[in-house]
């Protein structure tokens, strides 16, 4: 299974796009070695702004640059680039539908060692709350590239969640990415699993295992969390015996909530997997931490079995 590091792909994509479009500028808050914007900095130093460890100013400054015709990418860890600057994103950026791109690096539990302060399990919920915001959570390196390209092509605020660790390739380099559209990554006829980010991989592992037991599972990558084409989601659940959702995020206002909203009043059984109303914690490894919060293939298998029992 080939893998790519999403942070690295992001950095390389920014470098490529920066060469094609001189409107692109990059703002950092002393994390460029982690977010991988150093690649852009080396190539285009005059369009790279180190803003110091001062995220609020960074976001509003980006708004000023965007209003003046630039396409700024604001970078930090997801927990800081959303929660710490919620009001700046709301007031300076989204209220005026200003063309700022916000990068949430080391999203979810992917910064397993640093613990709750640095883990971001509410970012999707926070960003989805704000009118005019677009929220993307790419599934792998290939989709990270396409999501960043789509963000540049779209005129308005975009939040992109990026995992810290190596991720298995699930989509291919020439797949099409359309903001708002979910993408089927495995077809099946009994149960549909809606997932995003690294959880798509967990769902695929579960689907492969369930196939051996004669259960056919469809897996859908919902990488666009706002907007979401609800019609497409409903289509993909048609004829299924039930739905499972899995996300590396609190169960509040993320993928599970989206699906529950869309199927309100529908008799289909729905199981939502995610992080309950608690903070994260430090762990020696990413997989171990995910397992602790029930974000693994066995949890998906149990949910499927529960629906079918």
């Amino acid at each position: 299974m080939s893998q790519q590091n999403c942070r690295k792909v992001y950095g390389e994509t920014l470098l490529d796009l920066g060469g094609k479009d001189s409107r692109i500028v990059v703002l950092e808050a002393d994390l460029s070695k982690s977010t991988m914007t150093t690649l852009f900095q080396e190539a285009f130093p005059e369009r790279f702004f180190e803003m110091g460890i001062a995220e609020q100013n960074m976001v509003s400054t980006a708004a000023g640059l965007a209003i003046s015709g630039k396409i700024p990418f604001v970078n930090s860890f997801a927990v800081f680039s959303t929660g710490r600057v919620y009001d700046q994103i709301r007031q300076s950026v989204c209220l005026g539908k200003v063309n700022v791109k916000i990068i949430g690096s080391s999203c979810g539990l992917s910064d397993f060692g640093d613990g709750a302060t640095h883990q971001s399990i509410e970012d999707v919920g926070l960003m989805r709350l704000i009118p005019n915001m677009t929220v993307l959570a790419p599934v792998d390196g290939n989709e990270t590239r396409r999501a960043v390209e789509a963000a540049v092509d779209y005129n308005g605020p975009v939040y992109i969640r990026i995992n810290r660790n190596d991720m298995p390739d699930i989509t291919s380099v020439d797949d099409v990415f359309t903001i708002g559209e979910p993408g089927m990554v495995r077809d099946g006829s009994d149960i549909v699993v809606f997932a995003n980010g690294y959880m798509v991989w967990k769902a695929l592992l579960a689907a492969a295992s369930l196939e051996k037991q004669g259960v056919s599972v469809r897996v859908v990558n919902v990488s666009s969390l706002k907007p979401v084409n609800g019609q497409s989601i409903r289509e993909m659940a048609r004829g299924m015996k039930g739905i499972v959702t899995i996300e590396e995020h609190t169960l509040v206002n993320g993928l599970g909530s989206i699906v529950l909203d869309l199927f309100r009043g529908n008799p289909l059984r729905i199981e939502t997997l995610g992080i309950p109303d608690v903070f994260g914690q430090s762990a020696p490894g990413y997989e171990e931490l995910l397992r602790h919060y029930g974000l693994d293939e066995s949890a998906v298998i149990r949910s499927v079995e529960k629906i079918l029992s």
């Binding site: 702004f49 509003s60 005026g96």
Partner: peptide
């Protein structure tokens, strides 16, 4: 720009100056 949530306008002005 949209201002009024106090403290943000100077940052936006910095972005325009940059």
């Amino acid at each position: 720009a949209n201002t009024g949530s106090l403290g943000q306008g100077l940052s936006i002005a910095c972005g325009m100056a940059m």
